[in-house]
Simulated assay, not measured.
Amino acid sequence: MADDVADDRAGDGPPDGPGDGPPGGAGEPVTPDRLRAFSDGVFAIAATLLILEVKAPAADERVWHALRTEWPALAAYAVTFLVIGIAWIHHHNLFHQVRTVDRRMLLLNLGMLATISFLPLPTATLGGHLRGGDASAAAVFYSASMAAASAWFTLFWHHLCRRPYLMHPAARDGARRARRNSLLGPVGYVAAALLAPLTPEGSLALSAALVLYFVVGRRAPATRTRLPAK
Rank of each mutant, 00 (worst) to 15 (best):
L195A: 04
G188K: 04
L204F: 07
A178P: 00
R172M: 09
L210P: 07
T223C: 02
A209L: 15
V215N: 07
L160D: 01
L206G: 08
P169D: 13
V215Q: 12
T154N: 06
S207G: 13
V215E: 11
G174P: 04
A208P: 10
Y165H: 15
H158Q: 10
W157G: 01
R162D: 02
R219Y: 02
F156P: 01
T154Y: 14
R176L: 14
P221Q: 10
A175L: 15
A170L: 10
T154K: 01
S143A: 15
V216G: 13
Y213F: 15
M167C: 14
Y165S: 11
G188P: 03
R163Y: 08
S145L: 02
R162S: 08
M167R: 05
L195D: 01
F214H: 12
A196D: 00
P200W: 01
W152A: 12
L212K: 05
G202T: 06
A196Y: 01
A178E: 11
V215T: 15
R163F: 11
L212M: 12
F156E: 02
L206E: 07
A222R: 13
R180F: 12
R219L: 11
A149P: 00
Y142L: 07
R179S: 05
R176Y: 13
P197C: 02
L198G: 01
R162W: 01
V211W: 02
R176P: 06
A192Q: 09
G188N: 03
L210Q: 12
L160A: 07
D173T: 10
Y165T: 11
W157P: 00
F214I: 00
M146A: 14
P169M: 04
F214Y: 15
